[in-house]
């Protein structure tokens, strides 16, 4: 049984989408990221994604690239990740990790899963690992009761959506646009279609991410998605200060609760 399932069930009962907020660990410092993540939880994030800063983040736009670079320059180490996850969990929040594959591979797939589970983490999102290559990770996730969140994209074929859904647990991450992370003014028109196609293959909750930065956009996505994922906008808010993080979270949390009725 997925440890994220109760959260999505509760949101569904309340007739709303879950708010999922992303922040790179160690940005701008380890303590700073712990404070920000707890603030995000306190202000209305149902789940946080703790990003593992990586030297070659090919799926990220400039905002998250620069944050990851800053974290690494400040001396962030992979082992520091688990302390950040633990600080969220011990404050009563729910955390998953989002990581490119190479650092996990280098740490040791099973050791990473073991330490993530021990820190209270609930799962792992893998933006550059597809199920086809994920045999070791799927086994480790099962051993340590972690959810494995794979991605589907507008370019995914029906076959791939089906096989990716079958390999996933917790929720599916639907990338709303063909592109890298970064706040956008307009929510993609490809997202509703991708979610509709994906629902034909699975009952798993579907989180939609890439490009969301306002409560209004969150409301649009909440009309058809089970989770709204926000990343770059939080990184930008950190630069403006604590109050901006709280204000953004509250705005988004209201957004996922007033889902615009689909026309």
């Amino acid at each position: 049984m997925s440890r994220l399932a109760p959260m999505f069930a509760e949101c569904r009962e309340q007739g709303r989408a879950a708010l999922i907020g992303y922040l790179p660990a160690g940005y701008p410092t380890i303590e700073g990221s712990q404070d920000t993540l707890r603030r995000m939880v306190d202000s209305g994030c149902d789940l946080v994604e703790v990003g593992l800063p990586y030297s070659d983040p090919v799926m990220d736009g400039p905002t998250i690239q620069l944050a990851a670079e800053q974290s690494l320059r400040a001396g962030f180490r992979v082992r520091d990740l688990f302390g950040v996850v633990e600080s969220v969990a011990s404050a009563g929040g729910r955390a998953v990790v989002m990581s490119y594959w190479n650092p996990v591979l280098r740490y040791g797939v099973d050791a990473f899963a073991r330490d993530l589970a021990a820190a209270g983490g609930l799962g792992l999102i893998t933006p550059d690992l597809v199920p086809d290559e994920a045999e070791d990770w799927i086994a480790a996730a099962e051993r340590h009761s972690l959810d494995r969140i794979f991605l589907v994209a507008p370019s995914s074929t029906e076959d791939r959506i089906a096989s990716t859904s079958a390999a996933s647990s917790g929720f599916l991450y639907a990338t709303s646009v063909m592109g890298v992370t970064g706040a956008r003014d307009v929510v993609s028109s490809a997202a509703p279609e991708l979610v509709r196609r994906t629902r034909e293959h699975t009952d798993l909750p579907i989180g939609v991410g890439l490009g969301v930065r306002s409560g209004e956009q969150a409301a649009e996505l909440a009309a058809f998605a089970d989770g709204v994922i926000v990343g770059s906008a939080f990184v930008s808010a950190v630069r403006e200060g604590e109050d901006a993080v709280s204000a953004l979270t509250r705005d988004l949390a209201q957004g996922v609760r007033r889902a615009a009725t689909p026309a």
Binding site: V58, W101, V130, E133, A153, P154, S156, R160, T164
Partner: peptide, 19 residues
């Protein structure tokens, strides 16, 4: 699937798999 022994394969975003 592009494996030379344990090497190669496709360690990349789903968005590019179709391509």
């Amino acid at each position: 699937r592009g494996h030379f022994g344990p090497w190669g394969g496709r360690f990349m975003p789903e968005a590019l798999i179709a391509a």
